[in-house]
Design a protein around this nucleic acid. Structure first.
Length: 311
DNA sequence: TCATAATTTCCTGTTT
DNA sequence: AAAACAGGAAATTATG
């Protein structure tokens, strides 16, 4: 059974720490990792298999013993929460400097999945893209078993919005099967990965073939845009007609549709259907009409990231 | 859980 | 005639 993020019980930040469940304690830890950009290995989750009541009773010494350097951060943040019911997220930014050791990227691992799909590889796999992407280096945690915290909190399933299927991520060698949609998002960095996988700035992502692909993260127009942005490795699919105006043309419309379908795990995608989705973008001003010219579209004011000097 | 965004699917009609 | 374009309508699939 997959536990989804405490929908019925409220999010951790909506509840006083005293009343947190173990799961909410865990959410809090994840949040701290996220907002402080910490390495997941900074916090030994197994030391925090406790509910809110227990957590609130822990002393600074106990936090330090349990989490080392990060203990101080955890403790002071918790103290803050205990006396301030409100939890606006900017209050969580750490004022402490926790040293995070970053592993060197292992080039041999980086090469391991290169052949998998060169389009995706180039469209979404550039180091720059990934390091800049807030969403990419996140992982979804899958809680298996029966409603309580999984025994092994070192295991994460990661979702890569740029790839057609979820990526598996684990930094202690164990694996967990993910079913359905889990909801927690964390940041994790690991030092090694076996099997197909790759490193990005110290984050290792591993592909798990048992996981079913499902769409997420990237919208159609972004998918199109990203093909356009990688002309070297993706020749002949779509071409700029006027780069500065954002006008482009499909050269191999059905091939693009197939690729889109592959990404969405839908092998019956066609240009006919893809183009219907494209036409819906007109109203949202993600695309502008270019009439009289077949297979030609133009990015609208709500499309971002296609200009040459745009970050 | 239920509403919703973003397609996906299907379709009829028009245009190139 | 074949391939695109236009949109309406309804279904589907994740997500909050």
């Amino acid at each position: 059974m997959t536990v989804s993020s405490g929908f019925f019980g409220g999010q951790w930040h909506e509840v006083h720490p005293q009343y947190w469940t173990k799961y909410q304690v865990w959410e809090w830890l994840q949040h701290l990792l996220d907002t402080n950009q910490l390495d997941a290995s900074c916090i030994p989750f197994q030391e925090f298999d406790v509910n809110g009541e227990h957590l609130c009773s822990m002393s600074l010494q106990e936090f330090t013993r349990a989490a080392g350097t990060a203990g101080q951060l955890l403790y002071s943040n918790l103290q803050h929460l205990k006396w301030n019911g409100q939890c606006s997220s900017d209050l969580f930014q750490s004022t402490h400097n926790v040293i995070v050791k970053t592993e060197q990227t292992d080039p041999s691992v980086m090469n391991t999945w290169k052949e998998e799909n060169y389009l995706y590889d180039t469209s979404y796999g550039s180091t720059v893209d990934l390091l800049d992407s807030k969403t990419f280096c996140r992982a979804q945690i899958s809680m298996t078993t029966t409603g309580h915290l999984p025994v092994d909190l070192h295991t994460f399933a990661s979702i890569d919005p740029g790839f057609p299927r979820p990526l598996f991520l684990s930094y202690d060698g164990t694996a967990v099967k993910q079913s359905g949609t889990s909801t927690r998002i964390i940041t994790a960095r690991i030092s090694s990965v076996s099997g197909p996988g790759r490193f990005f700035g110290g984050t290792a992502l591993q592909w798990d073939s048992e996981l079913q692909p499902y769409p997420r993260g990237t919208h159609l127009w972004e998918f199109i845009r990203d093909i356009l942005l990688n002309p070297d490795k993706n020749p002949g699919l779509i071409k700029w007609e006027d780069r500065s105006e954002g006008i482009f043309r499909f050269l191999k419309s059905e091939a693009v549709a197939q690729l889109w379908g592959k990404k969405k795990n839908n092998n019956s995608m066609t240009y006919e259907k893809l183009s219907r989705a494209m036409r819906y973008y007109y109203k949202r001003e993600i695309l502008e009409r270019v009439d009289g010219r077949r297979l030609v579209y133009k990015f609208g004011k709500n499309a971002r990231g296609w200009r040459e000097n745009e970050n």
